[in-house]
Write a protein that binds this DNA or RNA. Structure first.
Length: 452
RNA sequence: UCCUCGGUAGCUCAAUGGUAGAGCAAUCGGCUGUUAACCGAUUGGUUGCUGGUUCGAGUCCGGCCCGAGGAGCCA
């Protein structure tokens, strides 16, 4: 019977067939060898003994090379010598697809010595086969699943925003331009302009899709193509917006801790091919997530954050935006994520609602993650007064003609509304303790890398 | 765009201006319980490109190319 390795515990004592790949081979003699088999659901060790499989079968298994694909028959045994607790006594081996002896990735390495970042990224199509990358891809999938579960449970509707857009609303410098039947179009850098009208139709909505930034940044936390989830809620308040952000993250963290903690252990297995040498341990990641699940997030106003920065030796002028050094200085004192809300209007985007308590500020927030993973979320209440919005568009030297339909949202039954943008990759980094953003997306796009 | 560091075997890295090396991978041999197996042997090089200094350059100097990480900007 054909089974998956993930189901092998139910098959003890039975003869089964596995279809997969040879991850590694250790030959002990002309009579005994070990195959590390993986099938996408897990890995198991196959024990190939001459007296169990016969000469022809042994020779076939002995000819297996790294990453060749195969069908393997065998008897499932519980065995405490195996890391997973189960082994397969191999009784048949059939090659499906050979793998020449120039397979570029080594099945193991002495920590980060085996391969470097550039080499691994050039072989991303093969790198994905390794256990660490499998665990990261699974964690990404589970994160999206849990996010969708959260918004579903709160009555949100998924609204897909377009990727091709006509307007360069916040300036063209960070946008990718494409030729759209002879006129310029741009790859979307945010779905916000589209979920704003949608929330007036469906009350609570979110979009989730790729975002594109042509910024020439080259760091561990930037991609030119990344996935962003952007909720937008009609009749939203500043406190309601923060509550939604915190509840969303606590929900995802709790689900990951309950269901997917094993993936975090796999990600931090020291045997993994990995160029992020100085990462947290799995225990540190789990402890950090437990705190984020159990303790209230820190909430600071911009002015309070300035005081913390002054105390930590990174003073800023009122009105200045935070740089990366300020972010780390700010979260140094806290071991849960930190909201910084109510920023000076001059540091933020044109569409943000003024704080009624003091109009020098706007109703907005950034959420800064623990452990150096940076900004996970940026959110705000949007201006719903059409005259104020026109004034702001003008002040920011933007073209009113580009915003006619956006202004319609304020013209007909305008309501206070707001939302935020969550960077999926940064969330997966933070959840998994993955130091480099290029590992948490299957095929990363950066300024220097379009292939594979 | 700016700053810093780097480019030597398939990979990860060594090599006072003086004969280009190791570990891993691969190949061959050995071993009936290996867990990143181990032991022995073999193969493997236009030292990123280019011009210069020098008796002699992987090493020093100029230019270029490529990569990494940080700044800025952001998610």
């Amino acid at each position: 019977m054909e089974v998956l390795i993930s189901e092998i515990a139910e098959q003890v004592g039975r003869s089964v067939t596995l279809k997969g790949w040879v991850h590694n081979k250790r030959q002990s003699s002309k009579k005994l060898l070990f195959l590390q088999l993986r099938d996408g659901s897990g890995t198991i060790q196959g024990v190939v003994a001459l007296n169990e499989i016969g000469e022809a079968g042994f020779d076939a298994a002995a000819a297996a090379t790294l990453e060749c694909s195969c069908e393997v028959d065998g008897l499932v045994r519980a065995d405490n010598r195996a890391p997973s607790g189960f082994e397969l006594t191999v009784t048949g081996f059939r090659l499906v697809g050979p793998s020449p002896d120039d397979y570029p990735l080594q099945p193991r390495g002495k920590g980060e010595e085996a391969h470097g970042a550039d080499f691994l990224l050039n072989h991303r199509h093969l790198w994905l086969r390794t256990p660490r990358q499998r665990a990261i891809m699974r964690l990404r999938d589970r994160t999206v699943f849990h996010l969708r579960g959260f918004f579903d449970s709160r009555g949100f509707t998924l609204i897909d925003s377009p990727i091709l857009t006509a307007n360069a609303c916040e300036g063209t410098s960070t946008l990718f331009e494409v030729d759209y039947f002879g006129r310029p179009a741009y790859l979307s850098q945010s779905g916000q302009l589209y979920v704003e009208p949608a929330c007036q139709a469906l009350r609570k909505v979110y979009c989730f899709g790729p975002s594109f930034r042509a910024e020439k940044s080259f760091t561990r936390k930037h991609l030119t193509e990344f996935w962003m989830l952007e909720p937008e809620v009609a009749f939203q308040t500043q406190d309601g917006n923060l509550e939604l952000q915190e509840a969303m993250l606590k929900y995802v963290v709790e689900k990951v801790l309950d269901n997917d903690a094993g993936l975090i252990a796999d990600i931090h297995d020291k045997r993994g091919l990995d160029f992020a040498a100085d990462e947290e341990s799995a225990e540190e990641v789990l402890a950090r997530l437990e705190r984020a699940r159990d303790e209230a997030f820190v909430r600071l106003t911009y002015d309070e954050a300035l005081e913390v920065l002054k105390k930590n030796g990174e003073p800023l002028e009122w009105g200045d935006d935070f740089g990366a050094p300020h972010e780390s200085a700010l979260v140094r004192d806290f071991d849960v994520p930190v909201f910084v809300e109510r920023w000076p209007a001059q540091a933020k985007a044109f569409y943000m609602e003024p704080d009624p308590a003091d109009e020098r500020y706007v109703l907005c927030d950034d959420l800064i993650a623990t452990a150096g993973y940076g900004e996970l979320i940026g959110g705000s209440i949007r201006i719903h007064d059409i005259e104020l919005l026109k004034r702001r568009i003008d002040e920011h030297k933007l073209d009113l003609a580009d915003f006619q339909w956006y202004l319609d949202v304020r013209r007909y039954g305008s309501v206070p509304h707001g939302g935020f943008g969550l960077g999926l990759e940064r969330l997966v980094q933070w959840l998994g303790g993955v130091r480099h953003i290029r590992e948490v997306i299957p095929f990363p796009r950066t300024i220097k890398r379009l292939d594979p």
